[in-house]
Protein backbone atom coordinates (compact mmCIF):
# COMPACT_ATOMS: atom_id res chain seq x y z
CA UNK A 1 0.00 0.00 0.00
CA UNK A 2 1.84 3.10 -1.22
CA UNK A 3 -0.73 5.79 -0.80
CA UNK A 4 -0.89 7.50 2.57
CA UNK A 5 -4.41 6.93 3.82
CA UNK A 6 -5.21 8.72 7.06
CA UNK A 7 -7.60 6.02 8.30
CA UNK A 8 -6.37 4.32 11.47
CA UNK A 9 -6.72 0.79 10.10
CA UNK A 10 -4.92 1.65 6.86
CA UNK A 11 -2.12 3.38 8.74
CA UNK A 12 -1.80 0.44 11.11
CA UNK A 13 -1.57 -1.98 8.18
CA UNK A 14 1.01 0.20 6.46
CA UNK A 15 3.19 0.51 9.54
CA UNK A 16 2.79 -2.90 11.16
CA UNK A 17 1.59 -5.21 8.43
CA UNK A 18 -1.51 -7.31 7.82
CA UNK A 19 -0.88 -9.83 10.60
CA UNK A 20 -0.65 -7.12 13.27
CA UNK A 21 -3.68 -5.33 11.86
CA UNK A 22 -5.78 -8.46 12.21
CA UNK A 23 -4.60 -8.87 15.80
CA UNK A 24 -5.46 -5.29 16.75
CA UNK A 25 -8.86 -5.53 15.07
CA UNK A 26 -9.65 -8.69 17.01
CA UNK A 27 -8.70 -6.97 20.25
CA UNK A 28 -10.64 -3.82 19.40
CA UNK A 29 -13.67 -5.93 18.43
CA UNK A 30 -13.68 -7.49 21.88
CA UNK A 31 -13.08 -4.27 23.81
CA UNK A 32 -14.70 -1.52 21.75
CA UNK A 33 -16.80 -2.74 18.86
CA UNK A 34 -18.30 0.67 18.12
CA UNK A 35 -14.90 2.22 17.65
CA UNK A 36 -13.91 -0.57 15.23
CA UNK A 37 -17.12 -0.13 13.24
CA UNK A 38 -16.43 3.60 13.11
CA UNK A 39 -13.02 2.96 11.54
CA UNK A 40 -14.36 0.42 9.08
CA UNK A 41 -17.18 2.71 7.98
CA UNK A 42 -14.84 5.69 7.75
CA UNK A 43 -15.02 7.26 4.29
CA UNK A 44 -11.23 7.40 4.21
CA UNK A 45 -10.81 3.62 4.58
CA UNK A 46 -9.18 1.84 1.65
CA UNK A 47 -10.95 -1.11 0.03
CA UNK A 48 -7.81 -3.23 0.55
CA UNK A 49 -8.25 -3.04 4.32
CA UNK A 50 -11.92 -3.98 4.15
CA UNK A 51 -11.00 -6.95 1.96
CA UNK A 52 -8.25 -8.10 4.33
CA UNK A 53 -10.59 -7.79 7.32
CA UNK A 54 -13.41 -9.84 5.85
CA UNK A 55 -12.72 -12.88 8.10
CA UNK A 56 -12.63 -10.64 11.22
CA UNK A 57 -15.85 -8.88 10.19
CA UNK A 58 -17.40 -12.31 9.93
CA UNK A 59 -15.99 -13.54 13.26
CA UNK A 60 -17.28 -10.45 15.05
CA UNK A 61 -20.54 -10.53 13.07
CA UNK A 62 -20.35 -6.84 12.20
CA UNK A 63 -22.45 -7.06 9.03
CA UNK A 64 -25.51 -5.23 10.32
CA UNK A 65 -23.41 -2.31 11.52
CA UNK A 66 -21.61 -1.74 8.25
CA UNK A 67 -22.54 1.19 6.05
CA UNK A 68 -24.05 0.89 2.57
CA UNK A 69 -20.68 1.33 0.84
CA UNK A 70 -19.12 -1.59 2.70
CA UNK A 71 -22.16 -3.85 2.39
CA UNK A 72 -22.32 -3.17 -1.35
CA UNK A 73 -18.60 -3.87 -1.69
CA UNK A 74 -18.99 -7.15 0.20
CA UNK A 75 -21.92 -8.13 -2.01
CA UNK A 76 -19.74 -7.58 -5.05
CA UNK A 77 -16.91 -9.60 -3.48
CA UNK A 78 -19.33 -12.46 -2.76
CA UNK A 79 -20.59 -12.43 -6.33
CA UNK A 80 -17.16 -12.33 -7.98
CA UNK A 81 -15.49 -14.89 -5.74
CA UNK A 82 -18.62 -17.07 -5.71
CA UNK A 83 -18.58 -17.05 -1.88
CA UNK A 84 -22.02 -18.43 -1.10
CA UNK A 85 -21.66 -18.06 2.69
CA UNK A 86 -20.82 -14.37 2.43
CA UNK A 87 -23.58 -13.89 -0.10
CA UNK A 88 -26.13 -15.34 2.29
CA UNK A 89 -25.01 -13.02 5.10
CA UNK A 90 -25.05 -9.77 3.15
CA UNK A 91 -27.82 -10.38 0.65
CA UNK A 92 -30.68 -9.06 2.75
CA UNK A 93 -28.75 -6.08 4.13
CA UNK A 94 -29.40 -2.61 2.65
CA UNK A 95 -31.00 -2.01 -0.69
CA UNK A 96 -28.96 -2.19 -3.84
CA UNK A 97 -29.54 0.67 -6.21
CA UNK A 98 -27.56 2.02 -9.11
CA UNK A 99 -26.25 4.99 -7.17
CA UNK A 100 -25.04 2.90 -4.22
CA UNK A 101 -23.41 0.47 -6.59
CA UNK A 102 -21.69 3.26 -8.50
CA UNK A 103 -20.18 4.89 -5.41
CA UNK A 104 -19.14 1.59 -3.86
CA UNK A 105 -17.45 0.32 -7.03
CA UNK A 106 -15.77 3.65 -7.64
CA UNK A 107 -14.42 3.56 -4.09
CA UNK A 108 -13.22 -0.03 -4.60
CA UNK A 109 -11.25 0.97 -7.69
CA UNK A 110 -10.00 4.36 -6.57
CA UNK A 111 -8.64 3.13 -3.25
CA UNK A 112 -8.19 -0.55 -4.17
CA UNK A 113 -5.72 -0.02 -6.98
CA UNK A 114 -3.05 0.95 -4.46
CA UNK A 115 -3.26 -2.62 -3.14
CA UNK A 116 -3.30 -4.29 -6.54
CA UNK A 117 -1.34 -7.55 -6.26
CA UNK A 118 -2.51 -8.21 -2.70
CA UNK A 119 -3.64 -11.70 -3.69
CA UNK A 120 -5.35 -13.47 -6.58
CA UNK A 121 -8.89 -13.09 -5.19
CA UNK A 122 -8.45 -9.40 -4.45
CA UNK A 123 -7.11 -8.78 -7.96
CA UNK A 124 -10.01 -10.74 -9.41
CA UNK A 125 -12.51 -8.53 -7.55
CA UNK A 126 -10.61 -5.43 -8.61
CA UNK A 127 -10.64 -6.47 -12.27
CA UNK A 128 -14.41 -7.02 -12.10
CA UNK A 129 -14.92 -3.66 -10.38
CA UNK A 130 -12.89 -1.93 -13.10
CA UNK A 131 -14.87 -3.70 -15.77
CA UNK A 132 -18.20 -2.68 -14.16
CA UNK A 133 -17.07 0.90 -13.73
CA UNK A 134 -16.07 1.25 -17.35
CA UNK A 135 -18.70 -0.85 -19.12
CA UNK A 136 -21.77 -0.29 -16.97
CA UNK A 137 -21.19 3.17 -15.52
CA UNK A 138 -19.06 4.53 -18.37
CA UNK A 139 -16.77 6.20 -15.87
CA UNK A 140 -13.64 7.59 -17.52
CA UNK A 141 -12.03 9.09 -14.42
CA UNK A 142 -10.53 5.77 -13.36
CA UNK A 143 -8.70 5.19 -16.66
CA UNK A 144 -5.28 6.58 -15.58
CA UNK A 145 -5.40 4.39 -12.45
CA UNK A 146 -6.33 1.37 -14.55
CA UNK A 147 -3.41 2.05 -16.90
CA UNK A 148 -1.11 2.20 -13.88
CA UNK A 149 -2.38 -1.21 -12.74
CA UNK A 150 -1.90 -2.72 -16.21
CA UNK A 151 1.70 -1.54 -16.52
CA UNK A 152 2.55 -2.43 -12.93
CA UNK A 153 1.28 -5.96 -13.42
CA UNK A 154 3.02 -6.29 -16.76
CA UNK A 155 6.35 -5.48 -15.14
CA UNK A 156 5.80 -8.50 -12.88
CA UNK A 157 4.44 -10.75 -15.69
CA UNK A 158 1.09 -10.87 -13.91
CA UNK A 159 -2.38 -11.24 -15.35
CA UNK A 160 -3.40 -8.20 -17.42
CA UNK A 161 -5.80 -9.77 -19.90
CA UNK A 162 -9.13 -8.62 -18.41
CA UNK A 163 -7.85 -5.19 -17.36
CA UNK A 164 -6.57 -4.41 -20.86
CA UNK A 165 -9.88 -5.52 -22.32
CA UNK A 166 -11.89 -3.36 -19.89
CA UNK A 167 -9.58 -0.40 -20.44
CA UNK A 168 -10.19 -0.39 -24.19
CA UNK A 169 -13.89 -1.06 -23.70
CA UNK A 170 -14.16 2.55 -22.49
CA UNK A 171 -14.24 3.16 -26.25
CA UNK A 172 -12.67 6.54 -25.67
CA UNK A 173 -9.60 7.53 -27.71
CA UNK A 174 -8.34 9.23 -24.53
CA UNK A 175 -6.95 5.78 -23.59
CA UNK A 176 -4.44 6.12 -26.43
CA UNK A 177 -3.02 9.29 -24.92
CA UNK A 178 -2.79 7.63 -21.51
CA UNK A 179 -0.90 4.64 -22.90
CA UNK A 180 1.35 6.84 -25.03
CA UNK A 181 2.81 8.35 -21.84
CA UNK A 182 4.38 4.96 -21.10
CA UNK A 183 6.42 5.21 -24.32
CA UNK A 184 8.59 7.63 -22.34
CA UNK A 185 9.12 5.21 -19.46
CA UNK A 186 12.64 4.18 -18.54
CA UNK A 187 11.31 0.65 -18.04
CA UNK A 188 11.77 -1.47 -21.18
CA UNK A 189 8.70 -3.60 -20.46
CA UNK A 190 6.52 -0.48 -20.21
CA UNK A 191 7.72 0.74 -23.59
CA UNK A 192 7.19 -2.68 -25.19
CA UNK A 193 3.65 -3.00 -23.86
CA UNK A 194 2.74 0.59 -24.76
CA UNK A 195 4.08 0.06 -28.23
CA UNK A 196 2.06 -3.16 -28.63
CA UNK A 197 -1.15 -1.62 -27.33
CA UNK A 198 -0.80 1.43 -29.56
CA UNK A 199 0.01 -0.51 -32.71
CA UNK A 200 -2.65 0.14 -35.26
CA UNK A 201 -3.53 -2.18 -38.08
CA UNK A 202 -4.10 0.03 -41.10
CA UNK A 203 -5.26 -2.70 -43.46
CA UNK A 204 -7.77 -5.51 -43.61
CA UNK A 205 -5.00 -7.85 -44.68
CA UNK A 206 -3.18 -7.13 -41.43
CA UNK A 207 0.02 -6.37 -43.29
CA UNK A 208 0.34 -2.70 -42.45
CA UNK A 209 0.90 -2.31 -38.75
CA UNK A 210 1.68 1.17 -37.53
CA UNK A 211 3.99 0.79 -34.52
CA UNK A 212 4.81 3.96 -32.60
CA UNK A 213 8.46 4.91 -32.86
CA UNK A 214 8.47 7.50 -30.08
CA UNK A 215 6.10 9.46 -27.87
CA UNK A 216 6.24 12.59 -30.01
CA UNK A 217 5.94 10.64 -33.27
CA UNK A 218 2.91 8.82 -31.91
CA UNK A 219 1.21 12.03 -30.76
CA UNK A 220 1.73 13.50 -34.22
CA UNK A 221 0.24 10.38 -35.78
CA UNK A 222 -2.70 10.49 -33.38
CA UNK A 223 -3.33 14.15 -34.08
CA UNK A 224 -3.30 13.50 -37.81
CA UNK A 225 -5.63 10.50 -37.57
CA UNK A 226 -7.88 11.32 -34.62
CA UNK A 227 -10.73 12.59 -36.85
CA UNK A 228 -10.86 9.18 -38.52
CA UNK A 229 -10.19 6.63 -35.81
CA UNK A 230 -12.89 4.30 -34.58
CA UNK A 231 -13.19 1.55 -32.00
CA UNK A 232 -12.93 -1.93 -33.55
CA UNK A 233 -13.54 -4.09 -30.46
CA UNK A 234 -10.48 -6.27 -31.13
CA UNK A 235 -8.91 -7.83 -28.07
CA UNK A 236 -6.19 -10.26 -27.05
CA UNK A 237 -8.82 -12.98 -26.86
CA UNK A 238 -9.29 -12.64 -30.59
CA UNK A 239 -5.82 -11.98 -31.99
CA UNK A 240 -2.16 -11.74 -31.03
CA UNK A 241 -1.97 -8.20 -32.42
CA UNK A 242 -5.26 -6.48 -31.62
CA UNK A 243 -5.98 -3.07 -33.03
CA UNK A 244 -8.74 -1.84 -30.72
CA UNK A 245 -8.60 1.46 -32.60
CA UNK A 246 -8.41 1.62 -36.37
CA UNK A 247 -8.30 4.33 -38.99
CA UNK A 248 -11.24 4.67 -41.35
CA UNK A 249 -9.32 5.13 -44.58
CA UNK A 250 -12.42 5.89 -46.66
CA UNK A 251 -13.33 8.82 -44.43
CA UNK A 252 -9.75 10.04 -44.43
CA UNK A 253 -9.68 9.84 -48.20
CA UNK A 254 -12.89 11.88 -48.45
CA UNK A 255 -11.83 14.10 -45.51
CA UNK A 256 -15.13 13.44 -43.80
CA UNK A 257 -16.11 13.08 -40.21
CA UNK A 258 -17.47 15.16 -37.35
CA UNK A 259 -13.98 16.11 -36.23
CA UNK A 260 -12.67 17.18 -39.62
CA UNK A 261 -12.26 20.89 -39.66
CA UNK A 262 -14.78 22.33 -42.11
CA UNK A 263 -13.19 24.63 -44.58
CA UNK A 264 -15.23 27.60 -45.64
CA UNK A 265 -16.16 28.16 -49.27
CA UNK A 266 -15.65 24.54 -50.16
CA UNK A 267 -17.71 22.84 -52.79
CA UNK A 268 -18.02 19.27 -51.62
CA UNK A 269 -18.48 16.61 -54.24
CA UNK A 270 -21.97 15.22 -54.61
CA UNK A 271 -23.04 12.11 -52.76
CA UNK A 272 -23.24 10.25 -56.06
CA UNK A 273 -19.73 11.26 -57.08
CA UNK A 274 -18.48 10.38 -53.60
CA UNK A 275 -19.97 6.94 -53.88
CA UNK A 276 -18.30 6.37 -57.26
CA UNK A 277 -14.95 7.58 -56.00
CA UNK A 278 -15.22 5.36 -52.96
CA UNK A 279 -16.02 2.36 -55.08
CA UNK A 280 -12.82 2.88 -57.07
CA UNK A 281 -10.88 3.69 -53.90
CA UNK A 282 -11.98 0.44 -52.25
CA UNK A 283 -10.75 -1.58 -55.21
CA UNK A 284 -7.18 -0.40 -54.59
CA UNK A 285 -4.83 -2.55 -52.56
CA UNK A 286 -4.09 -1.67 -48.93
CA UNK A 287 -0.82 0.12 -49.66
CA UNK A 288 -2.46 2.31 -52.27
CA UNK A 289 -5.45 3.10 -50.05
CA UNK A 290 -3.16 4.13 -47.21
CA UNK A 291 -1.08 6.30 -49.53
CA UNK A 292 -4.08 7.93 -51.19
CA UNK A 293 -5.92 8.67 -47.94
CA UNK A 294 -2.82 10.23 -46.41
CA UNK A 295 -2.17 12.31 -49.47
CA UNK A 296 -5.78 13.42 -49.67
CA UNK A 297 -5.97 14.66 -46.08
CA UNK A 298 -2.61 16.43 -46.31
CA UNK A 299 -3.74 18.23 -49.43
CA UNK A 300 -7.13 19.06 -47.89
CA UNK A 301 -5.41 20.80 -45.00
CA UNK A 302 -2.87 22.56 -47.15
CA UNK A 303 -4.85 23.73 -50.17
CA UNK A 304 -8.58 23.13 -50.21
CA UNK A 305 -9.05 24.44 -53.75
CA UNK A 306 -6.50 22.09 -55.23
CA UNK A 307 -8.02 19.28 -53.17
CA UNK A 308 -11.45 19.96 -54.64
CA UNK A 309 -10.05 19.52 -58.12
CA UNK A 310 -7.98 16.51 -57.19
CA UNK A 311 -10.76 14.60 -55.41
CA UNK A 312 -12.95 14.89 -58.50
CA UNK A 313 -10.31 13.42 -60.82
CA UNK A 314 -10.31 9.67 -61.61
CA UNK A 315 -8.78 7.57 -58.86
CA UNK A 316 -5.97 6.27 -61.11
CA UNK A 317 -5.04 9.89 -61.89
CA UNK A 318 -5.17 10.70 -58.17
CA UNK A 319 -2.80 7.85 -57.56
CA UNK A 320 -0.33 9.09 -60.15
CA UNK A 321 -0.31 12.48 -58.49
CA UNK A 322 -0.08 11.03 -54.99
CA UNK A 323 2.84 8.82 -55.97
CA UNK A 324 4.72 11.92 -57.03
CA UNK A 325 4.11 13.00 -53.47
CA UNK A 326 4.57 16.47 -52.16
CA UNK A 327 6.69 17.32 -55.19
CA UNK A 328 3.60 17.13 -57.40
CA UNK A 329 0.37 19.00 -57.06
CA UNK A 330 1.09 20.28 -53.58
CA UNK A 331 3.91 22.53 -54.69
Amino acid sequence: MNHLSSNFLDRYRRNKGTYQLKAVVKEMGEKNKNKLVYYINDKKLFFGSLFILMPEIDDLNLYEQLNIRNITALKICAKITEDEKLKEKVESLSSENRENMFYAIKWMVNTGHYDDGLNNKFDEVLDAAVSQMIKTYEDKTILPAVAEMIFKRNRKNQFTHDLIWAFFESRDPYVLEIIARYLRSSNKKDVELASNLLSCNLSDEGLHMMRPKSYSAYLSWLKENSPFIYFSGESFQQTSHPSPWRVNLSKKYLCQGPKVQNKKNTQPITAEAQSEQLQSFNQLNDTERILLSEYSYKMYKKNIHLWEKWIKSPVNRQMEIAKKGLGGIMK
Binding site: Q238, T239, H241
Partner: peptide, 30 residues
Protein backbone atom coordinates in the same frame (compact mmCIF):
# COMPACT_ATOMS: atom_id res chain seq x y z
CA UNK B 1 -2.78 -15.17 -34.14
CA UNK B 2 -3.63 -12.80 -36.98
CA UNK B 3 -7.12 -12.36 -38.38
CA UNK B 4 -7.59 -11.49 -42.06
CA UNK B 5 -10.47 -11.25 -44.47
CA UNK B 6 -10.22 -14.34 -46.66
CA UNK B 7 -11.28 -15.03 -50.22
CA UNK B 8 -13.20 -18.12 -49.08
CA UNK B 9 -14.05 -19.68 -45.75
CA UNK B 10 -12.59 -23.16 -45.54
CA UNK B 11 -12.87 -26.06 -43.12
CA UNK B 12 -10.04 -25.79 -40.60
CA UNK B 13 -10.20 -21.98 -40.46
CA UNK B 14 -10.33 -20.24 -37.12
CA UNK B 15 -13.23 -17.85 -36.83
CA UNK B 16 -14.37 -15.52 -34.04
CA UNK B 17 -17.80 -14.64 -32.73
CA UNK B 18 -17.70 -11.32 -30.91
CA UNK B 19 -20.09 -10.40 -28.09
CA UNK B 20 -19.91 -6.60 -27.83
CA UNK B 21 -22.43 -6.22 -25.00
CA UNK B 22 -21.01 -8.95 -22.77
CA UNK B 23 -21.74 -8.78 -19.03
CA UNK B 24 -18.72 -6.91 -17.62
CA UNK B 25 -18.55 -9.39 -14.75
CA UNK B 26 -17.92 -12.28 -17.16
CA UNK B 27 -15.47 -10.81 -19.67
CA UNK B 28 -14.38 -14.29 -20.80
CA UNK B 29 -17.67 -14.39 -22.74
CA UNK B 30 -16.58 -11.31 -24.75
Amino acid sequence: GYMKKPKEYLPGDRRYIINPDVDPLTPHWQ
